[in-house]
Design a protein around this nucleic acid. Structure first.
Lengths: 174, 174
DNA sequence: TAAATTCCCATGATATCCCATATGTTAACA
DNA sequence: TGTTAACATATGGGATATCATGGGAATTTA
């Protein structure tokens, strides 16, 4: 799991150290690398390991082969992702166009998002975090939204009550 | 798998270097070559290895033998694909009519699409990528479309992919 | 014989690898 | 409790290998 945020600097060769904790999460991957996508939805890089790419491949493969959405995703996702290999000290070199896309100039922020993480221009991320917080705060005022935010299954009660989950944990298929 | 996009130049002899990563993906093919199709859907070349051709053959073979669509596909796909062999440095020579079809003049973009890739005039692809990105970005704003692009994670896949969550559910301490 | 194609080698740019240094954190010990 | 040692992490710079690409020679085709 990719957790928490940390800032690192990109040097003259556009190298950045990937947080040690993130590298730990990639320990079992076949390549000593991360996959990086300049995201179509904003000035940031979406990153992850093998699972990150496979998830996108699956989403795309599940669409009809001549579907327009599928073709768009192939270009903007598969066509845009690059594998960046670690050097011996745990750094990757960011391609010039990736740096341009995210507006990275010196400091950049690594933001953990569970099964993937993002790389932002440090200042841009700080500003965004303020926005996100106030937006979430406002959402809580609306009961329907509050329900949506915390309406998921309660892990504790699930454990106490669910036989099918117990079966799943024993390795049985549902 | 063909991943990411890179630009290369076509020289005076109409030779282009195929990205090293793509050649790696073709390592196990019987021929040291790519199959190239001037696509009927736009000014670009659709390319791939052995699997790329076989997929088209299958699609066509599944149609009735006297079907009008089948006959069209036979002409526009099977009749149009050419095999281009690599030279010793990993380049292929593009036939004149292929260059005309894609409007290639100097720089061209190689776009990875998982099991195949495309070759575009570099400028044409840049313009198209902008279109695709804004279209996808707009789509995300619509919850129904966002759902189609990637539904929420189900508990099963979460369990399969997260050792620490599985451990937690089994009652172990983290 | 002319034109085009294929093969081979040379070069430059870029990315990759390796070692050295700095910084910060934990652990050990006085 | 203060000091030092050991370690892990982050960063900087130089050497090396890989890749893209240009040009010329050999071979084929018209």
């Amino acid at each position: 799991m990719f957790l928490s945020t940390s800032e690192h600097s990109a040097d003259a060769k556009n190298r950045v150290s990937v947080p040690a904790g993130y590298r730990e999460a990639l320990r079992d991957d076949p390549y000593d690398a991360i996959y990086v996508l300049p995201h179509f939805d904003g000035p940031y890089l979406e990153c992850g390991g093998e699972q990150f790419v496979q998830q996108y491949r699956m989403d795309i493969a599940n669409l009809p082969r001549y579907d327009a959405l599928r073709k768009d995703l192939e270009i903007a996702v598969i066509g845009a992702i690059r594998r960046l290999d670690f050097d011996s000290t745990g750094r990757v070199t960011l391609p010039r166009d990736f740096i341009d896309h995210a507006g990275i100039d010196g400091r950049c922020a690594f933001v953990g998002c569970d099964n993937h993480f993002q790389i932002w221009n440090a200042d841009a991320h700080a500003a965004r975090l303020r926005d996100v917080r106030s937006r979430l705060s406002a959402r809580l005022a609306d009961p329907a939204e509050a329900e949506r935010m915390g309406g998921g299954t309660d892990l504790g009660s699930l454990l106490r009550n669910s036989e099918s989950l117990a079966a799943l944990l024993k390795g049985e298929k549902l």
